[in-house]
Write a protein that binds this DNA or RNA. Structure first.
Lengths: 130, 130
DNA sequence: ATCCTATATTAGGTTTGCCTAACTTTAGAG
DNA sequence: CTCTAAAGTTAGGCAAACCTAATATAGGAT
């Protein structure tokens, strides 16, 4: 099933927020993504329709297995890209973060895995050289 | 001036097509980007309005300096990303190409330059090792 | 128990960028 | 020179995803 950038952003936000072990509310998501409350309500309806999340009005938002998978995966892509940009290319931290937020929606799982492995071996090599 | 993904796609297409030293027509752009003719006409109007291109109805499309700069820059980002994905990460060629098409709109000039330098030094190093 | 405030939802509007269908222009074949 | 086919434009529509303004709900303070 294809996911849009927007859907991935919401799933990632909910996933990251849920790592804090506090119920995830609409307002938390709005704050996290810098969008207004009605945009979140609308987006959550889409997520529920496609079975990425469970939500009853005025209650917490909860990811399904499927939603959690996508949210976690997107967040992992973000983290790997951020590390690559910051630690290897030496892009300033804030710019690296912002670009990771965009690129995370563009790369496949295969590229994610290969980038991860590349960084591991690259860092091992530079350690050996030192 | 901020450019959207769509505008960058059109400028890049026109730039690449113009490298062939043949006048660039609406239909060429449509074919290149896999969109329909009216979408191109409409996009060109946007480009002309913002002075990225010059166009009189039923004639060739010509980039301004400003438009050429963006088109060329986007194409360079594409090529560097493609190379990185294909030659360093070993992502299959067609997948590497498709992802480069998406990521090219997400990275800054700084990241482009740093990725280029990184690849140069990386390839020098692996050559030395061999 | 009531009421107020923070949170959430609904309704309706905007922008971007694509589409199809219908119409116009241009250039080249005859 | 005409006329037709390819190329381009115009008109109108659609979907995604955001917004503001207005309305509804729920839970805590009194």
């Amino acid at each position: 099933m294809k996911t849009t950038k927007s859907i991935e952003d919401y799933l990632e936000a909910i996933y990251v927020l849920s790592l804090k072990n506090k119920p995830v509310r609409i307002k938390d998501i709005a704050k996290f993504l810098s969008v207004k409350l009605p945009s979140v309500t609308e987006a959550i309806n889409r997520l529920v329709k496609d079975e990425y999340a469970v939500h009853t009005p005025y209650e917490d938002v909860i990811l399904t297995k499927k939603g959690e998978y996508v949210g976690k995966n997107t967040w992992e892509k973000h983290q790997i890209l951020f590390k690559f940009l910051k630690d290897i290319l030496k892009v300033p931290q804030d710019k690296a973060f912002r670009e990771a937020c965009l690129v995370e929606h563009c790369i496949s799982d295969e590229t994610k895995d290969k980038l991860k492995k590349f960084m591991k071996s690259f860092q091992n090599n530079t350690e050996r050289i030192r």
